[in-house]
């Protein structure tokens, strides 16, 4: 993030714990979405047994 000149538009940040963990969580969720989408498509195509 570009740092503006002093006194104005100071970059916003979350507390450091969240700065580290939120991107990781979002990345994991993105992978989960892809995985579940693939499973749904596989079930729809009959490649994978459906529980429902």
């Amino acid at each position: 993030m570009k740092t503006p000149s002093s006194g104005k538009g100071t970059p916003r940040r979350y507390p450091s714990l969240y700065e580290k963990t939120i991107p990781v969580a979002l990345g994991i969720i993105a992978l989960i979405i892809v995985f579940l989408a693939v499973v749904s498509i596989a079930v729809a195509l009959g490649w994978f047994p459906g529980a429902y």
Binding site: S40, V43, A44, Y52
Partner: peptide, 12 residues
């Protein structure tokens, strides 16, 4: 049963 993956995919 084929309906379920389509609805669930939309939900995901």
């Amino acid at each position: 049963r084929i309906l379920t993956p389509f609805f669930n995919l939309y939900g995901v």
